[in-house]
Design a protein around this nucleic acid. Structure first.
Length: 190
DNA sequence: CGTACGATCTGCT
DNA sequence: GCAGATCGTACGA
């Protein structure tokens, strides 16, 4: 069951980030279909969140996509090497986003292994935001892409995670007090 | 135009 | 556990 527009327009990005655990992220990049169950997310709470690229209402070529209506991708380059995949949420002009930090491979395992340059599945194969995009073949060409299209989308396969863990976000020490906010959600086992 | 640095990963020790 | 990779983006001059 593909997630549709209203899902992405939800006003509470923190709640939505938590709800995304257990949803399935699907990509049809290249000629392969690959997918994974989302097991770790982080919420970025718009203009009042010092850790967000859109903090203070900052609108640039890069962040502009965050100000669009929810239901599209925001892919950007981090540390000059890694593509990080985010889901833009909420209505137009409210720049909320959820970073997908980890998945558990579901479909296209063979292609995921190939992209990750690995021989076999292991616990940390797709744990880490750069690994997720690598595994699914997502890069900056997939920025600002509608999640209602047929390249990247999300599905609700009725997987209900339990034992959800909550903690501060990773790598946002520069955000002062906001670095401590409990905006990261993950599950050890699905 | 120049500079500083980042929502990270990997491989080596 | 730690350093190195590596470059787009943001911002100030």
């Amino acid at each position: 069951m593909k997630l549709k527009r209203p899902y992405y327009l939800q006003p509470d990005v923190v709640k939505l980030a938590k709800d995304l655990l257990g949803k399935v992220l699907v990509s049809k990049t290249g000629n392969f279909l690959t997918s994974g169950i989302i097991t770790e997310t982080e919420a970025y709470n718009g203009i009042i969140d010092k850790a967000s690229h859109a903090f203070g209402g900052r609108r640039t070529n890069r962040t502009e996509v965050m100000f669009a209506e929810g239901g599209i991708s925001y892919v950007y380059l981090c540390y000059g090497i890694h593509n990080l995949f985010n889901i833009v949420t909420n209505v137009k002009d409210i720049p909320h986003a959820v970073l997908i930090r980890a998945i558990q491979p579901l479909k296209g395992e063979k292609h995921i292994l190939q992209r990750r340059n690995a021989k076999a599945l292991n616990k940390n194969l797709c744990v880490g935001p750069g690994k997720v995009t690598n595994a699914l073949g997502i890069n900056r060409e997939h920025n600002a892409l509608s999640l209602n299209g047929n390249i990247i989308w999300l599905e609700d396969d009725n997987i209900k995670p339990k034992d959800i863990l909550i903690g501060p976000r990773i790598g946002v020490d520069y955000a002062g007090e906001d670095a401590k906010l409990p905006y990261r959600f993950w599950v050890e086992k699905i």
